[in-house]
Design a binder for these strands. Structure first.
Lengths: 292, 292
DNA sequence: GGAAATATCTGACTAAAGTCAGAGAAATGG
DNA sequence: CCATTTCTCTGACTTTAGTCAGATATTTCC
């Protein structure tokens, strides 16, 4: 496939460049691993576990790296008062200065990439990089089933309700406690979209009859909008319905959610008569599921 | 600068992905260095020196890596019959199979990047990647002075003449031997454009009077066209003229080279009367050099 | 034909990056 | 309150990726 070939060629070209970046990180007489770790320490301090997780380090290795940075006077380690097994890492003034030096190196390298280009080439490059980054972000979002009562699921649903409350002119009251109560019955499903593990969207399927299910709680976090997540969630929910032997899905929506309506129409939904007494619903849609 | 920030953000995002690619290369129980070397062996065989050069390896290190691949049965080593100090590396059947396995891994990884995207997103991603790659290629091209009698300079000039011969309806004869004979006088300059060390363009500046120089031998290799190399060469030659205290540059061109004429006009040249008896010239241009 | 240059190989080393098996301290669950 | 779990640290080890100084064979230059 031509596109696969283009991606591989792109990878090769870009790895070449990022290699230069890594080399520049060695310009300060410190191994790359140390520099990377220094970069991951958050301004307000981090706990070791989160650093380890982000960089994928072994506990012993991380401990030693941190000790090295500590003896260099770049970070300070202290026990977390809330849980004294944990230790908190903070940057010292020297550490902050060192990080700024690394930042300056990176900035210089980025600027040197732009330097030979004309103004219009620079603009094109930056625009294309933004596009690649956005689409790689979209591609990194994974959709998978999630227990409806998990912390992440509840966080998504709460975010969804919070947003409805902010957008509906008269506010929004989830009524029966909100969290849908029981875990999904047979044929139901709760899906969650994650970006690097972080939940950024959800959608639920609730059977409402012999052959019909209702799609509910479709929500995408602001940071993940415009990436086609809602489209993918909808398609995944339809697939789930299909696999449970259902032949029709319905959903309702509020007039203020115009993007949602456009999405439903584009996905082949057509408007039908009111089928429930949801006080927040203004439009009702259905879609008959083919064998796909 | 916002664009520098975008580049750094892009680097971070892309390094994450290409890291995944390198990890996938480890899936075949062989260190990355070995796999990379296996990849660099050309289908028809390579000599060790060129492999070393492309991967930047120490001679001892390369020797050991090759030995490892040889004992694995992936490559065969034999002396170059033309120069028995040299050794030639060829892939064995097993080596070829192994390389195909790596190729498949890369293809899978690239395909998995595309899989979650819609058709239009895929098209956008591939287009943006092509754009980034093209512009990074443009940014990698460096322009620098070159002795006019170096092998690379002569290769460029010969390519230039070859192209003129192909493009001019009546062919082209460089007349006085072509290679401009003597090395540049004072105030003259020969510039060469290189992509990863390979020459991909040239341009010369010849003083023709007290305050004037002529621009000659402007050429860009086909592989580097559309990247703004000619524009940069022209600007660099003008800079060279300016630094020699010259205030005016002139040049001539043939009617078949219409891209060239557009470039000259855009760079602020205006057409003047014939100033030489070059039988291949149809148009003559000049530009007065401001202090910049 | 001999000296110098070139291409590769060998041996001896090093630094970086990481793995693994516990040990010790603190928190948590029943 | 005791067993289990969690979090970090330590010591001992390995692999990868290299560097450097010659040794050796061959070619090229004069």
């Amino acid at each position: 496939m031509a596109s696969v070939r283009q991606i591989r060629s792109f990878n090769r070209a870009v790895t070449h460049r990022t290699g230069a970046l890594e080399d520049s990180y060695l310009g300060r007489g410190r191994p790359l691993g140390h520099a990377r770790l220094l970069f991951e320490v958050a301004p307000e301090g981090s706990d070791i576990a989160s650093l380890r997780e982000r960089l994928g380090l072994d506990s012993g290795y991380a401990s030693r790296l941190l000790r090295a940075l500590e003896t260099e006077g770049l970070v300070a380690l202290q026990s977390d008062p809330a849980d004294r097994r944990r230790r908190l890492v903070t940057l010292t003034d020297r550490g902050r200065a060192e990080r700024e030096a690394y930042d300056a190196l990176s900035d210089d390298l980025a600027a040197s990439l732009l330097a030979p280009l004309s103004r219009s080439q620079r603009e094109r490059l930056v625009a294309a990089m933004t596009e690649v980054e956005t689409l790689m972000k979209a591609a990194s979002i994974a959709i998978m089933p999630e227990p409806e009562d998990s912390a992440d699921a509840q966080w998504c649903v709460a975010s969804y309700f919070g947003e409805l409350a902010a957008r509906f002119p008269g506010g929004f009251d989830p009524g029966d406690g909100g969290y849908a109560g029981k875990p999904a019955e047979t044929a139901g499903a709760f899906l969650i979209a994650r970006l690097h593990g972080r939940p950024v969207g959800c959608g639920a399927l609730k059977p409402t009859g012999h052959s019909t299910a209702e799609i509910k709680r479709m929500w995408v976090a602001p940071e993940a909008r415009g990436l086609g997540v809602a489209r993918r969630l909808l398609a995944a929910l339809e697939d789930a319905a299909r696999q449970s032997g259902l032949t029709r899905v319905v959903l309702d929506t509020n007039r203020t959610l115009s993007e949602a309506q456009a999405l439903y129409r584009k996905a082949g939904y057509r408007m039908i008569e009111r089928y429930n007494d949801n006080p927040y619903a203004d439009f009702w849609f259905e879609k008959t599921l083919g064998p796909e």
